[in-house]
């Protein structure tokens, strides 16, 4: 298996965020912040993605969608929770329709706090996710060798 951590593809799904973090994720793809200089590219297809960016909390309806996207992604994969809502539920934690943060549904590797998370911290989160992906790749390769 090749090392995908040098140029991972990212997929973004807006859980139940207020749009703030959502637009900041898009803003970090545009020329001023330009996340593509770290080798990542945005894709809409979960089956080609390595890093999953989730913004906003999980509610009863989108829980199934988030889980489905996660299951469709090939292994190894990294999940980044962007914004306070995705980390813990945030300001909407007490709302009747919010279950909680992303980690109530799928395992989260990197937490990026902030309301709304700034593009600089989103970029930092993605760079850390690349490192995390690399470790996962090495671990999977090792496991595959030992399996033989």
């Amino acid at each position: 298996m090749k090392d995908v951590s040098k140029s991972p593809w990212i997929i973004h799904y807006d859980g139940s965020s207020c749009n703030g973090c959502d637009m900041e994720v898009l803003a970090s793809l545009t020329p001023v912040y330009d996340i593509e200089r770290f080798g990542v590219i945005n894709t809409g297809d979960p089956m080609q993605a390595d890093i999953f960016l989730v913004t906003g909390g999980i509610n009863t309806l989108n829980q199934m969608v988030v889980k489905q996207i996660y299951d469709q992604m090939p292994s190894p994969k990294v999940v980044v929770a962007i914004g306070t809502c995705a980390c813990t539920g945030g300001i909407f934690k007490e709302c009747y329709n919010i279950i909680g943060g992303t980690d109530t549904t799928i395992p989260v590797d990197i937490y990026v706090p902030g309301c709304a998370a700034r593009p600089q911290s989103i970029i930092d989160g993605i760079v850390q996710a690349k490192e995390c992906l690399k470790q996962k790749c090495i671990a999977e390769q090792k496991a595959a060798k030992e399996g033989k």
Binding site: S16, G56, N59, N62, F92, E94, C95
Partner: peptide, 13 residues
Amino acid sequence: GFVHRGLESLTDK
């Protein structure tokens, strides 16, 4: 309904 949070219910909290 994918983004529904129930924000108006926070009135009593």
